[in-house]
C-alpha cells in the first residue's frame, strides 16, 4: 500500500516513518557509504527533512518497504543547494518537485520498486506537475530503465546522479504491470 505523508500525517504513522529513517541509514550509510548523518536512534535525517517534505512510502506486510522524499523547487532543495553546478543553475518551478532519498528496505520484495514509482507518478499527475528533478545513486539508473520510467541524466559527480523524470501518463501502464506482475511471484 502506498502512503502519501506530510505534516500532520507523520505523527499518525510514527512507526512506519521511523522505519523509513532507519532503512535510509542502512542504505545510504551502510550499503552506499554516503557521508550522511545517523542519529543515536539509528535514523538518517538531513536538513531537508526539516523543510516539510512529502514522503511517498510503500508499505508491505506492515513494514516500510520503499520510500522517497519530495520537496517543491520553489523552496529550499538539495539539488539547488548542492548540485547547481550540474544543473547549470537553480531549477525553480511550482510544477517541478525535487525527489531525493529513494530508499529500499534491505528485505524489500522486488515489486515494491515499481509500486513506489507508480505511486510517485500518480502523485505528479494528480498534482499537475511536469517533472521531478532527482538526486540518486548512479547504479539505480539501470533499475529505473528496466522498470520503464528512466530519468534523463543531467549530470553526475562521484557516483551520484542528477536527473529528470517526466510526469507523463504513458509511463503508467508499464509501471502498473510490473508492480502487479512481480507481486504475484514475490
Amino acid at each position: 500500500m502506498i502512503h502519501y505523508l506530510s505534516g500532520d500525517d507523520l505523527p499518525c504513522h510514527a512507526d512506519l516513518v521511523s522505519q523509513m529513517f532507519r532503512d535510509r541509514a542502512t542504505q545510504f550509510r551502510g550499503r552506499l557509504g554516503w557521508d550522511v548523518t545517523v542519529d543515536a536512534a539509528g535514523q538518517e535525517r538531513d536538513v531537508y527533512d526539516d523543510e516539510g517534505p512529502l514522503y511517498v512510502i510503500c508499505e508491505d506486510a506492515g513494514h516500510h518497504a520503499a520510500s522517497m522524499r519530495f520537496l517543491p523547487t520553489t523552496g529550499r532543495t538539495m539539488v539547488n543547494d548542492h548540485f547547481a553546478d550540474l544543473t547549470g543553475g537553480p531549477v525553480v518551478s511550482p510544477l517541478i518537485w525535487e525527489c531525493t532519498r529513494f530508499c529500499l528496505a534491505p528485505d524489500a520484495p522486488r515489486h515494491v520498486t515499481a509500486a513506489l514509482l507508480l505511486g510517485a507518478l500518480d502523485l505528479g499527475l494528480r498534482s499537475g506537475l511536469t517533472d521531478a528533478v532527482g538526486v540518486f545513486d548512479m547504479a539505480m539508473i539501470r533499475v529505473y530503465r528496466r522498470l520503464g520510467w528512466p530519468p534523463t541524466l543531467i549530470g553526475e559527480r562521484g557516483g551520484i546522479g542528477v536527473g529528470l523524470w517526466a510526469f507523463d501518463g504513458r509511463f503508467r501502464a508499464g509501471l502498473e504491470r510490473r508492480a502487479k506482475a512481480n507481486c504475484a511471484t514475490a
Binding site: 523547487t73 531549477v91 517541478i96 517533472d131 543531467i154 529528470l164 517526466a166
Partner: peptide, 14 residues
C-alpha cells in the same frame, strides 16, 4: 536532451 531543455524553459517561465 530535449527533456532537459524543456525543464530549463519551464524554470525560466516561472
Amino acid at each position: 536532451s530535449e527533456h532537459t531543455l524543456r525543464v530549463y524553459i519551464e524554470s525560466a517561465r516561472f
